[in-house]
Computed example of a mutant assay.
Amino acid sequence: MKNLLLLLLALGLVPVALAQTRPAREVIEEGTNLFDAGKYDEAVARYQEVLAAEPGNVVALSELALTYNALDRHAEAADICKKLVKADPRVGPSVYVTYGNSLDGLKKPAEAVRVYEQGLKYFPNSYMLHFNAGVTQARAGQVPAGITSFQQAVARNPNHASSHVNLGLMQLGSEHRIPGLLALSRFLVLEPRSPRAVQRLPMLDKAMNLGVSRTGKNAISINISSAALAGANGKEGGPDNFGPAEMLLSISSAALLDSSLNKGVPPPTNAIERFVQQFSSLCKGLGELADNQKGFTWNYYVPYFVELEKKGFGPAFAYLAHSSQTDAPEVQQWLAAHPNEVAVFQEWSKNYEWPKDLK
């Protein structure tokens, strides 16, 4: 009987479905392992093996579309996802993510955003849909929309480092210094030692000292952009207005350049000590200004950093955020001498209850 079956298979006289001798789940898992190993063509072969026997296998189709994107076969990926979504709009958020990514790969950002928005109608709490929409909007130069998408992403997943860093970069790029500074700081709490941290940490340090410079032996200049003084919508008094906080941060930075302006506080001996004092001053100032403020940053980031300061975690945060500076001995020495302080801070941060109010 076995020999007869092999003969019929060779002649193509046995239905393909009978040729599938292994469970589909097992073959798909093999395909995903190959995908994770970067062996995309081999992964495609496994998914096609399943689909030859089960043409409607949603998991195999979804994984095949994802792999086609990795191979820059975006049109084929989009076609698969389009059919999956048409057959069942609730097929799953990952299919909408793959669909949008494929359209983005085809240089169709407007269509990609529409797909993400369509997916959010069915899966409003999918942080990945919000995040991917933000990435597409950022590439298209849609700054306010991109910022909103990244805000929605971090609100749904406070531990998604990529959403925090992209939000921070967009806000800094639009001259909203303090919102961008806080988002970037949160990123560095989550990912303090990664290659991305090495790349982005200098932007945080630059933002802390932005617009403050010594212009003479006894002269310090402070320059604050009009965008930084306005709210998120560009209007003074609107949501996420950090004008007063901008002034406080700039003044505290200036004081650190001139000890005569900062009486009673020992001058910093290096850049990291300067950062610790600046950040502490910023958090205290935000706490004093927080009453009756509105906007996403005030509601979401500010309470976290104000509480961080009140609990005495300022130094632990600052040195952890700078831990990617392997060429800064003062940073590495402090971290080596205070492992418990860092661990306690990280445990508090891990268990912090982020607000649900997304306004």
Rank of each mutant, 00 (worst) to 15 (best):
L4Q: 10
G12I: 07
V16M: 07
A19G: 14
P23A: 03
R25D: 14
R25W: 10
I28S: 08
I28K: 11
G31N: 08
T32C: 14
V44L: 14
Y47D: 11
E49L: 09
A53P: 01
E54R: 12
E54D: 11
G56H: 12
S62F: 04
T67N: 11
T67V: 12
L71H: 09
A75P: 03
D79M: 15
C81Q: 06
K83V: 14
L84I: 09
K86H: 10
D88C: 08
D88Y: 02
D88R: 11
T98Y: 15
S102H: 04
G105I: 15
K108A: 13
P109V: 07
P109T: 11
P109K: 08
E111F: 02
A112C: 06
R114K: 14
R114A: 14
V115G: 15
V115F: 05
E117C: 03
F123I: 03
N125D: 13
N125K: 15
L129N: 04
N132P: 06
A133I: 04
A133P: 06
G134I: 04
T136W: 12
Q137M: 09
R139W: 14
P144H: 05
A145D: 12
G146P: 03
T148D: 15
S149C: 03
S149Q: 05
Q152Y: 11
R156S: 00
H160C: 10
S162M: 12
V165W: 06
N166G: 10
G168T: 03
L169K: 15
L172P: 05
S174G: 07
H176S: 05
P179K: 05
A183T: 04
S185R: 07
R186D: 04
R186F: 06
V189W: 02
E191K: 10
R193S: 13
S194M: 05
S194K: 08
V198I: 13
R200E: 15
K206P: 02
A207L: 07
N209A: 14
G211D: 08
V212K: 01
V212G: 02
S221I: 00
S225H: 10
A227Y: 14
A228I: 10
A230V: 09
G231R: 04
E236V: 13
G243T: 12
A245Q: 07
I251R: 14
S252K: 07
S253E: 13
A254M: 12
A254N: 01
A254S: 13
A255V: 00
A255R: 00
V265K: 01
P266M: 01
P267G: 01
P268G: 00
R274I: 00
F275I: 02
V276R: 12
Q277N: 05
F279W: 12
S280Y: 08
K284Y: 06
G285Q: 07
L286M: 05
G287H: 02
E288C: 11
A290Y: 00
Y300D: 03
E307T: 13
G314T: 13
A316R: 04
A318H: 00
A318L: 02
Y319T: 00
A321C: 10
H322P: 08
T326K: 11
Q332M: 11
L335E: 10
A336N: 10
E341T: 01
E341S: 04
E341W: 11
V344E: 09
F345I: 01
Q346R: 15
Q346P: 08
K350N: 09
K350L: 11
K356P: 02
L358V: 13
